Amino acid sequence: MLQEQELIEATQDHGFALKLMELLVIPTFVLDLNGKVLIWNRACERLTGVQAAEVLGTDEHWRCFYDLPRPTLADLVVQGRGAEVHRLYDQHVKRGDDGNNSLTAENWCDMPRLGRRRYIAADASPICGNDGGIVAVVQTLRDLTDEKKAQIALEQLATRDGLTGLANRRCFDQTLQAEWHRALRQQQPLSLLMVDVDNFKQYNDAYGHLGGDECLQRIAGAVSSEMRANDLVARYGGEEFAVILPNQSLKGAAIVAERIRCRVEQLQLPNLGTAKQFVTVSIGAATALPAVENEANQLVLTADTALYRAKHMGRNRISLTNEAQA
Rank of each mutant, 00 (worst) to 15 (best):
M1K: 12
Q3K: 03
A10K: 03
T11Q: 13
H14V: 05
L20S: 08
L33A: 03
N34D: 06
V37R: 12
W40K: 04
N41Q: 00
N41D: 00
R46L: 12
V50P: 07
A52G: 06
V55W: 11
L56I: 14
T58I: 13
D59R: 14
W62R: 12
P69Q: 10
R70A: 02
P71L: 08
V77W: 10
V78L: 08
G80E: 04
H86G: 05
H86Y: 01
D90V: 03
H92P: 00
G96P: 01
T104F: 09
M111K: 00
R113C: 00
R113V: 09
G115R: 04
A122S: 15
A124L: 02
A124N: 02
P126V: 01
G132H: 02
A136D: 00
V137Y: 02
T140G: 03
R142C: 06
K148G: 11
K148R: 15
A150C: 06
E155M: 08
R160Q: 15
D161N: 03
G165V: 11
L166C: 01
C171P: 02
D173L: 13
D173F: 09
T175Y: 07
Q177P: 01
R182P: 01
Q187K: 02
Q187C: 01
Q188W: 10
Q188D: 04
S191R: 09
S191L: 09
L192H: 05
M194P: 06
V195W: 09
D196R: 07
V197R: 10
V197M: 08
N199A: 15
N199S: 12
Q202Y: 11
L210V: 09
D213R: 06
E214G: 08
C215A: 10
C215P: 09
Q217W: 00
I219L: 00
I219D: 02
E226P: 01
A229Q: 15
N230S: 15
L232V: 15
G237Q: 10
V243I: 11
I244D: 05
I244G: 03
N247E: 15
N247R: 14
N247C: 13
K251Q: 12
K251A: 08
G252C: 01
I255C: 14
V256K: 12
A257I: 09
A257K: 05
A257D: 03
R259H: 14
C262G: 12
C262Y: 11
R263T: 11
V264T: 06
E265M: 13
Q268K: 11
P270G: 03
A275V: 06
A275T: 07
K276L: 06
Q277D: 05
V279W: 01
V279A: 03
T280W: 12
S282C: 14
A285G: 07
T287A: 04
T287G: 02
N297Q: 11
Q298D: 11
L301E: 09
T302P: 03
A303S: 05
D304R: 06
A306M: 13
L307P: 13
Y308R: 13
A310E: 14
K311S: 08
K311Q: 07
H312Q: 14
G314Q: 04
L320T: 15
Q325R: 15
